[in-house]
Deep mutational scan, measured.
Amino acid sequence: MGSVRTNRYSIVSSEEDGMKLATMAVANGFGNGKSKVHTRQQCRSRFVKKDGHCNVQFINVGEKGQRYLADIFTTCVDIRWRWMLVIFCLAFVLSWLFFGCVFWLIALLHGDLDTDYKDDDDKSKVSKACVSEVNSFTAAFLFSIETQTTIGYGFRCVTDECPIAVFMVVFQSIVGCIIDAFIIGAVMAKMAKPKKRNETLVFSHNAVIAMRDGKLCLMWRVGNLRKSHLVEAHVRAQLLKSRITSEGEYIPLDQIDINVGFDSGIDRIFLVSPITIVHEIDEDSPLYDLSKQDIDNADFEIVVILEGMVEATAMTTQCRSSYLANEILWGHRYEPVLFEEKHYYKVDYSRFHKTYEVPNTPLCSARDLAEKKYILSNANSFCYENEVALTSKEEEEDSENGVPESTSTDSPPGIDLHNQASVPLEPRPLRRESEIGSRR
């Protein structure tokens, strides 16, 4: 089982795998120059863009038009607004034209077009017409509009002379109601789609790998820009990579689940303020055997998904993003964004995407760390350097704002901070800030 798991979770494809794949392509008759073999020097295209759209195009789909027309309502909801407006206008105009032609044909076959009612006051002739005051196609078209929109100006009306005319008036009224219901329903469904809710759900630009509770963890940050909550919010993550099976089958995008606390339930989050999602790199993680150097040379993509129900409509929305291997910062942490004021908490989104480097973060893999092949620094050293990194950030910001350097908390000259780390230190809580992250 261990060997199978290692093969499945191998992220960085070796040169031997690339040569094996190329040999397979030639042997199977696919070596026509169009096949692409992804190596370390040639990274694959992003499968999920940063804005959440999937970078996929469908080609050679059989009976595409028929399949889309069979699900016309979903098609109308998914198309762009400009095409929705075109369909909206065409549906009414074509129905008016169709029934206008029908009423014109009825008048033509009944002989109503030969009668001039402007110079004739004989009401008996008017009563013999199928539709009064309809003696041309324009008049028939206007009567069709008046019937379907129930305008009723009063000059044109159907008589009991022709039952077919009466039937067409009733039929057009029913068709008009159906068109109204369909168009209004599609427009309302399109307006109520929770897709735009994703514009106020954000992911951090970069993911980070750092120590948390004595273990290497992959972390990324999510935030909600609205005050309205995302009900039943939960997160998922998958690692996408290519691999070759033991039988020699090439899988271009193998999807591997990344555990973010599904078993323990901590994948469900209360997204009021930005939260750091934590994936513990343990023996079940696809990143277990990867060191910093392996991450730098790897070719994979981590897709992160945030799902929840919109509070206003109770409709489920899904926000997506992805991180390539070069977008994962090893040995970094996110800057705090949640600050405790006197009577409330304040979230500073200008710090949302910012990170700071944490010294002495192990550069080895989580496996080597678990097997004690890498000796961690003293816990006080880690905490102290973590505090120094934050303090230096604040000093830089104070210097930019014009604060005198004498007010900063610099260490005395001639003292090495790293050498001082081995000395037991008193706890130094942050002056006014605390970061709330997901705790395992």
Score class of each variant (00 low, 15 high):
T149P: 02
E396I: 08
V48A: 08
R46S: 01
E133G: 10
K128W: 03
D71T: 13
R221N: 00
D122T: 01
Q318M: 13
L338T: 13
F339G: 11
Q172Y: 02
T200C: 14
F98M: 14
R221D: 01
N198G: 14
S422G: 05
L230F: 04
F300K: 00
L376T: 14
G2S: 11
Y374D: 14
L108Q: 13
P427L: 03
S228A: 13
Q172K: 02
H53N: 04
I251Q: 12
L90E: 03
M168P: 01
T245C: 15
A366W: 01
F155W: 08
D267Q: 12
T355Y: 02
T159V: 02
I258A: 00
N360Y: 07
M191G: 05
Y117S: 00
E335S: 11
S45W: 05
T391W: 07
T409W: 09
A181T: 15
R221P: 00
D160F: 01
G31Y: 06
E435L: 04
D112R: 01
L230I: 12
C130N: 03
N401T: 12
S322V: 00
V126I: 13
D284C: 12
Q172T: 03
I266Q: 14
S246C: 06
A379G: 11
K123D: 01
E63Q: 14
R156Q: 03
S392G: 13
R82Y: 15
T23G: 08
S246L: 09
C319H: 15
K393G: 15
T316V: 13
L21H: 12
Y250E: 15
Y153M: 05
M309V: 11
F30D: 15
R226M: 07
A107W: 00
T6L: 12
D122S: 02
F141D: 00
E340P: 07
K36H: 09
G176H: 04
L390R: 15
R351E: 15
Y323A: 00
L216M: 05
V388C: 12
T391K: 05
G331S: 04
Y117I: 02
L85C: 06
I79W: 05
Q238E: 11
S136D: 11
I183A: 13
T147F: 02
D368H: 05
L201D: 06
E133D: 07
L69R: 11
F203H: 04
K193T: 08
I72C: 14
V231S: 11
N198A: 11
R428Y: 13
E311H: 11
V131G: 02
T147V: 04
S228M: 14
Y384N: 14
M84P: 13
R46F: 01
V93S: 05
P274D: 12
L369C: 09
F300Q: 00
E341W: 06
V93A: 05
R67A: 06
Q420F: 06
F141G: 03
N206S: 07
C101V: 09
I251W: 13
N32Q: 10
R44V: 15
M191H: 04
G2F: 02
A22Y: 04
N401L: 09
T150K: 07
P427E: 03
R333I: 15
I415T: 13
T407Q: 09
Q57K: 12
C54F: 09
V403G: 13
F141N: 03
L21K: 12
E426A: 05
T391D: 15
D180H: 14
S322P: 00
R431A: 12
A379N: 08
D416P: 07
E385D: 08
D17W: 03
F143R: 01
K34N: 14
R351W: 12
A312I: 09
A22M: 05
R236Q: 12
K342H: 03
I209M: 07
F262D: 04
A237F: 01
D368Q: 08
A370D: 08
D284P: 06
A312H: 08
F143S: 01
G331V: 02
I209K: 01
N135Q: 14
D410V: 05
N135H: 15
T23S: 14
K227Q: 06
V169S: 02
A129E: 04
R236C: 05
D348C: 02
L97N: 02
Q255Y: 08
R431N: 15
E15P: 08
G33F: 07
D213I: 01
N198E: 14
M168A: 11
L201V: 07
S45C: 06
F47I: 08
G261N: 10
D160I: 02
V48E: 01
S291D: 11
V158N: 02
D254V: 09
Q238G: 09
S422F: 10
D121P: 15
A91L: 13
I151T: 13
C89N: 13
N259W: 03
L108S: 14
A370H: 07
E397G: 11
Q255C: 08
T149G: 09
V202R: 12
W220D: 00
T391S: 12
C101F: 06
K227W: 07
D410S: 06
D213G: 15
R432Y: 13
A129M: 15
A312T: 03
I87P: 02
I277R: 01
D71P: 13
V170A: 03
E16T: 07
F300M: 06
L230S: 11
S264I: 10
P252Y: 15
D294L: 03
I275T: 07
V278Y: 10
E405N: 10
K118N: 00
N28Q: 08
V272Q: 08
S321A: 13
F382P: 05
